[in-house]
């Protein structure tokens, strides 16, 4: 059975495949206890008991082939994507990403010229990165992202005490970012040049709640240092595209991420075929 379906899967990954899920994941996802009837569909692979998903559970699933990256790339990716609290590396730290489009509302204090420059910047990103779309929301009720200055109304209580510039992001149980506020103290960042530089850096960082690197040259938006020559480098795009690629599970912990790579690379090496990652579409 697996062989035949696997071969079919290469040509039509969406239609003729069998999907499995761990028991715990199944319970979390479908919020129900498994019955004896369900256990008839259990499959044991190595030490994992997997539930075979029924047709009714499978219709919202899309599968994507594992996207291979070498160890050097993954080293840099992990350093920026897994933002460890208090600089303390933990396997529990998870990566975060935006599932929905970013709809940015600019407060009235952000000038037209500044808004234009920021939207040109986000347009560059949207154009290059699949699954990441950023645009302006004319009304705050339609937005999930607010950019504002300290001289304006306080949009988020968590930023009330911030005297510099920062953002505050919210995420759901799936580590999907779903709301953000970006605030700049316009008295301190007194010029348009300073405000724009800061907003673009913070906005970029908030696209994945990234950790900014002490290693990358200052030109890169993934770098933690300032530069007159700041630009979205090709490698920035490569990291960002990978963050939003579905060739690996999204929203996972560092431990899961590493384990999945290990298993997918092993499968690729031993069977010369890619593992497919299935993602539930809400």
């Amino acid at each position: 059975m697996p062989n035949a379906q696997g071969q079919e899967h290469e040509a039509h990954p969406h239609n003729n495949m069998v999907n499995y899920m761990t028991v715990q994941d199944y319970k979390n996802r479908f919020q129900r206890e498994l019955t004896k009837q369900d256990s008839l569909n259990f499959v044991i692979i190595k030490n994992d008991t997997l539930v075979t998903l029924l047709e009714k559970d499978r219709y919202k699933v899309v599968s994507v082939a594992y996207e291979y990256k070498d160890d050097t790339f993954l080293k840099y990716y992990k350093e920026v994507a897994f933002n460890h609290p208090n600089d303390s590396v933990s396997e529990e730290t998870s990566m975060k990403y935006w599932k929905d489009d970013l709809k940015i509302y600019f407060s009235n204090t952000v000038s037209k010229h500044e808004k234009k420059s920021i939207l040109e910047f986000t347009h560059q990103i949207s154009n290059q990165v699949d699954s990441l779309s950023i645009y302006e929301a004319k009304h705050i009720k339609d937005a999930n992202y607010v950019i504002y200055y300290a001289s304006d109304f306080e949009y988020d209580a968590n930023l009330a005490k911030n005297k510099d510039a920062s953002f505050w992001v919210y995420w759901n149980g799936g580590n999907q970012l779903n709301k953000a506020f970006l605030k700049v103290n316009d008295e301190k960042y007194f010029s348009e040049a300073l405000r724009l530089a800061k907003i673009k850096t913070l906005l970029f960082q908030s696209l994945g709640y990234f950790s900014l690197s002490k290693e990358f040259e200052c030109q890169s938006y993934f770098s933690n240092c300032y530069s007159n020559d700041k630009q979205l480098t090709n490698f920035d795009f490569e990291l960002l595209k990978y963050h939003y690629s579905y060739g690996i599970c999204k929203g996972t912990s560092l431990a899961t991420f590493e384990d999945q790579h290990k298993r997918a690379q092993k499968a690729l090496k031993e069977h010369k075929r890619p593992t497919y990652f299935s993602h539930i579409i809400d």
């Binding site: 999907n19 499995y20 599968s63 759901n172 580590n175 999907q176 929203g251 593992t275 539930i280």
Partner: peptide, 20 residues
């Protein structure tokens, strides 16, 4: 062939921006 399903079970949180 293994087919993994992404299921996310992390508690919702919010966090400030700084990290190095």
């Amino acid at each position: 062939f293994y087919f993994y399903i992404l299921v996310c079970v992390y508690a919702g949180e919010a966090q400030d921006a700084s990290a190095t």
